[in-house]
Each structure stands twice: as structure tokens, then as C-alpha cells.
């Protein structure tokens, strides 16, 4: 039942595609190509001495225990950020979808955090949870709970997860709310007439009908947790204490920018690129099948 539009000639379709292709080339293919090339080189910081080393950079990265630790951190971090950001957003969207007074006000307020820059968000959380100047941090310590995310790796991880998830809740909220509003009333009313309680209606009717939105958000949230959380981690913990909150993307930054070790940094970003491509393929091939459109 697909409608196909057939263009005559090649010029017009190419012209229409050109802007997108140009952007892809300049902002993706070119830098990605440069990273792949850099990843097989060994170079001093100033670029004066270059040597082709083949796959040695990759070998060194993969046997490095610090890299494996970062991979594990990334796994924990991404899973926690994606699930918590989506669960909270779904809960809030369901609440805001009800006919309550001031619904629009709630909606606006819930969308606000998305407009906050990652570094600013991190500073806000720092002022809440800093062990000696933070409101909540001090309260925790006074209540006898030893809170010091500068020394406790688990607490540091918890803090960056909360701060990163908080920023993403707004985005998820908008999509969930739109998804909820597009569910036909008649379906819900039919279920209600059949005697399904609200909880039952949610899990058997609403949630399955939301699955395209949920699936889309899962992909977006994982990509967010992988790549866009640099600012939060950088401002809150700097990857510490020890290496407790160093994720793969943060490690790429540390290696390339702080340590000016470009070969290793490039190899790590190539590995990261392969991982994310693989993850997205898996998601589309296996999870998408369960999605009802």
C-alpha cells in the first residue's frame, strides 16, 4: 500500500537531498573519518612526530583495566539514567494528563529543566548535595548519614545519575504526554465500561499503545546517557572519586583533551561509535518487533 513518488531525472532529488548530505558529510563523515585515521597513529601532542602503529592503540585500550572499569560504569550509569528518567516522566505524564486544576501550569513547570544547560544543572545539584555547603548534603550529615560524594564512589554515581536523569525527565514527559493524548478516548471508555480498574486500564490498554513512544524514548535516552552527560559529570565529580564516575565518553575527553594522547583517545571514540551503532541495530531489530504501531 505504499505510495511511491517517482522523480524524473537525478538532479532534482539530489538537490533536495544536498543540504542533509552536506551536513552529514561535514559533521559526521569527515570527523568520524579523521578519528578513524587518528586511531591508527601515534603522535606527540604538537603533531610534529607521527608514526603509523596499526591497531596498537586499540589493543592497549582493550587490555587497560581502567577502560573496562569505565565501560562497566557506563553500563550502570546509562541503564539507571534511562530507566529512572523514563519511569518518572511516565508517572508525571499520566498524572498531568488527568483533568486537574492548573494542569497547564504543571506541564510548563515540568518542561522547564530541559532548558537548563548541563553544567548549570550540575551546579544546582552541587549546591544541594555538597557535604559542607549543600542544603541536603548538610542535612544528611547532621541526621547521622555519612554523605560525602567526593570520597564515596557509590554516592558520587548516585548523584550524577540523579542529576542526569532529572534533566532528561522533561523531554520524556513531553513525548509521553503527547502519546497519552493521542490515545483515543473511546478505547479507554470501552475498557472502563467492561469494568477495568484504572491500574488495569493503564497496563493493558495505555502502556501497550504507548510502546512506540517508549521505544523511541529508550533509544534517545540511551544515546543521551552515553554522549550528552559529559557536562554533568565534568562539573559534579570530574570522573572521581578514584575513577568511580568515569564513563566511556568522559574517558575519551580525559585522554584526548587533558592528557593530549590523541591516538588512544581516537581509538576509544571509534570503539564507542561501534558500540552505539551495534546497540541501535539491536534495538531496532529485536525490540521494535514487540512494538505495536
Amino acid at each position: 500500500m505504499r505510495k511511491k513518488v517517482i522523480f524524473k531525472g537525478v538532479a532534482l532529488p539530489l538537490l533536495l537531498l544536498a543540504p542533509q548530505l552536506a551536513i552529514t558529510c561535514v559533521f559526521f563523515l569527515w570527523p568520524a573519518g579523521a578519528a578513524i585515521w587518528q586511531s591508527v597513529l601515534q603522535q606527540d601532542a604538537w603533531g610534529l612526530r607521527t608514526e603509523f602503529v596499526g591497531l596498537r592503540n586499540f589493543e592497549e585500550v582493550l587490555v587497560d583495566p581502567a577502560w573496562r572499569e569505565a565501560a562497566w560504569n557506563t553500563l550502570v550509569f546509562s541503564a539507571a539514567v534511562a530507566t529512572s528518567a523514563m519511569a518518572v516522566a511516565l508517572f508525571l505524564a499520566v498524572q498531568a494528563d488527568k483533568s486537574i486544576r492548573g494542569a497547564n501550569l504543571y506541564k510548563t513547570l515540568l518542561i522547564w529543566p530541559y532548558a537548563v544547560a548541563p553544567a548549570v544543572a550540575a551546579v544546582l545539584w552541587l549546591f544541594l548535595f555538597h557535604p559542607s555547603i549543600g542544603l541536603i548534603g548538610r542535612a544528611l550529615n547532621q541526621a547521622g548519614i555519612l554523605w560525602d560524594y567526593k570520597l564515596n564512589g557509590g554516592q558520587a554515581m548516585l548523584l550524577v545519575i540523579i542529576a542526569s536523569a532529572w534533566k532528561q525527565v522533561s523531554y520524556n514527559f513531553i513525548f509521553f504526554l503527547a502519546g497519552l493524548q493521542s490515545i483515543p478516548r473511546s478505547v479507554l471508555e470501552a475498557a472502563a465500561i467492561d469494568g477495568a480498574r484504572p491500574t488495569r486500564r493503564f497496563w493493558t490498554v495505555v502502556f501497550p499503545l504507548l510502546s512506540p513512544t517508549t521505544f523511541f524514548l529508550l533509544v534517545v535516552n540511551l544515546v543521551y546517557a552515553f554522549f550528552d552527560t559529559f557536562g554533568v559529570i565534568h562539573a559534579l565529580t570530574g570522573g572521581g572519586p578514584g575513577k568511580a564516575t568515569e564513563t566511556l565518553i568522559y574517558k575519551v575527553y580525559v585522554e584526548g583533551v587533558q592528557n593530549t594522547n590523541l591516538g588512544s583517545s581516537a581509538a576509544q571514540s571509534v570503539i564507542l561509535m561501534v558500540l552505539v551503532i551495534a546497540m541501535t541495530v539491536v534495538q531496532f531489530r529485536f525490540i521494535e518487533r514487540r512494538v505495536h504501531y
Binding site: L151, N152, G153, G240, P241, G242, K243
Partner: peptide
């Protein structure tokens, strides 16, 4: 600094 932090964490 990282190794000092690990030591202060008791590791």
C-alpha cells in the same frame, strides 16, 4: 589524586 582517593575510601 585518584589513588589517594581510593586509599581514603578504604580500598
Amino acid at each position: 589524586q585518584e589513588e589517594m582517593e581510593k586509599a581514603f575510601q578504604g580500598q
